[in-house]
């Protein structure tokens, strides 16, 4: 199994351990990832608010790069960050459906000598693991089953919304299934896809912190030992502001928040450092 890999900006900075753990786990499982050359920002949500045409041009440059690098036929481009995944998928879908938009974006690509033919399939690592690799095979690779570990899965927003290319838009289960495959207990909770507020922890911190407080509090009420997530911004918000939130609301909301490949890596018996676990603010005790 071979895929092109689009890291996006966060996986090179605050979400570094997402990249580290995913690369380690995929390598261990024999899934080959090749980084996209010369990629640029995915456009993200903030960009769309200023200039949509420009945001979509920026995004489609990455799609064009993938075709350049990936050869002929259909190209699978893996984007682990939820915002990147959604930005690429949404742009691709809108270009397919709207002639006017497509024409103007293609023209912009043309002005810098690039073209996009619509051959890219945007994929998320969760989708790859469950649908291409398979949970049965993952189960066989487990060396240290995660017994007695209560896991809540936090999908965040943009992995199954607005376009649901895999799983379910309001009740996704892939991460829960992965956790169970690893031998852990997947705790059901009502917050799987409830937004963390994104950059609001910086802009309107009262609101941003409250959204994360509600999430952490419910995870604790559900007696979760750990939160797993698939988005660098979600992980950042949920983990890095725990002290601030605890102080603000006068109750401890401390709980480890890791990327799902980190959890997989532990069950596969990979080295902690390889999984970037030393970078976490809250060290998962169990692991």
């Amino acid at each position: 199994m071979k895929y092109l890999y689009y890291p996006g900006c966060s996986l090179k900075s605050s979400g570094k351990s997402y990249e580290e753990s995913m690369l380690a786990v995929f390598k261990h499982l024999g899934i080959e990832l090749q980084e996209l050359n010369d990629w640029n920002c995915c456009g993200a949500t903030n960009y769309m608010a200023i200039n949509e045409q420009s945001a979509m041009s920026v995004t489609s440059r990455n799609l064009a790069l993938a075709e350049e690098q990936g050869g002929s036929g259909e190209i699978n481009l893996v984007a682990p960050c939820n915002a990147c995944y959604m930005g690429l998928l949404k742009t691709k879908t809108y270009l397919e459906n709207e002639q006017g938009l497509r024409d103007s974006v293609l023209q912009k690509l043309d002005s810098i000598g690039m073209k996009y033919e619509g051959r890219v399939k945007v994929r998320h690592p969760l989708d790859i693991l469950v649908n291409d690799f398979g949970l049965d095979k993952l189960k066989m690779a487990v060396k240290k089953p995660l017994k007695d570990l209560n896991v809540v899965s936090y999908y965040g927003c943009q992995v199954v919304r607005p376009i649901t290319a895999f799983d379910d838009a309001s009740d996704p289960v892939y991460m829960d299934q992965i956790a169970m495959t690893l031998g852990a207990t997947a705790v059901d909770w009502g917050m799987k896809v409830r937004c963390c507020g994104g950059s609001m922890t910086s802009t309107v911190s009262d609101v941003g912190l409250r959204l994360n407080y509600l999430l952490l509090k419910e995870a604790k009420r559900k007696k979760a030992d750990i939160i797993i997530t698939a988005c660098p911004l979600c992980q950042f918000n949920l983990e890095c502001f725990q002290d601030k939130i605890s102080r603000k609301y006068g109750e401890s909301v401390n709980i480890p928040v890791v990327f799902f490949p980190q959890l997989i890596g532990m069950a596969l018996g990979l080295d902690k450092k390889e999984l970037g676990l030393q970078r976490m603010f809250v060290q998962p005790q169990y692991l």
């Binding site: 009502g190 409830r194 009420r221």
Partner: peptide, 8 residues
């Protein structure tokens, strides 16, 4: 919009 057991 939803029925949930999430309590506040």
């Amino acid at each position: 919009s939803e029925v949930t057991d999430w309590i506040t």
